[in-house]
Computed example of a mutant assay.
Amino acid sequence: MKKEYGYILIAYILMQLSIFIGVPLVYRIGIRAGQDPVFMRQAAPGYWIVISFSITLIIILLILRKARTDALLVRKAPASPGESIVWAIAGVFLALFAQGIAANIEANLFGVDPGSKNTENILQIIKTFPASMLVSSIFGPILEEIVFRKIIFGSLYKRFSFWIAATISSVIFAMAHMEFEHILLYSAMGFTFAFLYVRTGRILVPIFAHVAMNTLVVVVQLFYRDQLQHIQGLIGGFFQ
């Protein structure tokens, strides 16, 4: 693995751990600025994830600029722009389809509740601090595709078959979400995005599909949840 990729992984891990310091810090700053304590307890996580994800995304993109282009060993050249656009759009539906199948398997075979505490927490943060929707819909998916697909999956794929590389990277992707009862669902998403990456050779394709899917899920959950509650098992309401 390139040293630049190691730096990116460290930056991503530090970002995830920073919540334990950043949220209390933002809360105290808000209190000293005269904000209501109850409001700050609800808003501090939203403020911090926007700050931490924004800074980390900038750092990672700067690091990637210094790294040499690292094409996947799957085709002589990346897919054409037109083909990439087609796969990016189709990838949204593939991702939703894979998520729906996995959610139904979890519910019907393993009795797993299709609901997600992680989703509920994120929705509550967005309602309190709407700007945090940028993280769940855009910044988060971009960072995850760079870390889990470009770096982890890409590094494994150079040594192993697609199935082995996709399985390992997808399970790591699932475990990173800390909802182990939904490990099958998150792994299915990881497989879908890995397939898009391999099929096109362009990381922008799974990034687009991931961003579009998360944005759709956020909008549905925030504005159409009551009307579409009967298909919640299909959409799932997860933020991969």
Rank of each mutant, 00 (worst) to 15 (best):
L196D: 08
K66C: 02
F162K: 06
G111I: 13
E106G: 05
F191V: 03
F129E: 10
R149Q: 14
A95V: 06
M175N: 02
T69Q: 13
V198D: 07
A71T: 12
V112S: 01
V147S: 04
F97N: 08
I125C: 02
L156D: 05
V74W: 07
A174V: 00
F148S: 04
A165I: 10
V135D: 03
S137E: 07
I101Q: 02
E179C: 01
S137G: 15
E144H: 01
F173E: 03
F129D: 01
G201V: 08
T128Y: 02
V112T: 08
M175Q: 09
I59A: 11
T167Q: 02
R75Q: 15
L62V: 14
A131F: 15
K127Q: 15
A103P: 00
R65K: 15
I172A: 13
K127G: 04
L64Y: 07
E179P: 01
S84P: 10
K127L: 10
L61C: 11
S80G: 14
A131R: 09
S137N: 12
N121A: 11
E144K: 05
P81H: 07
K158P: 06
P114Q: 02
I151F: 04
L185W: 01
F191S: 03
T192L: 06
I59Q: 02
W163L: 11
I125E: 00
S132V: 11
I122V: 13
I168V: 15
I122L: 12
T119L: 03
Y157F: 15
I146L: 08
E181I: 08
L109E: 12
S169T: 10
G82N: 12
R75I: 03
P81Q: 06
S132M: 11
M178K: 12
F160S: 09
S169Y: 07
I63A: 02
V135W: 06
E181A: 14
E83D: 10
A98N: 13
L184P: 01
A77V: 14
E144D: 14
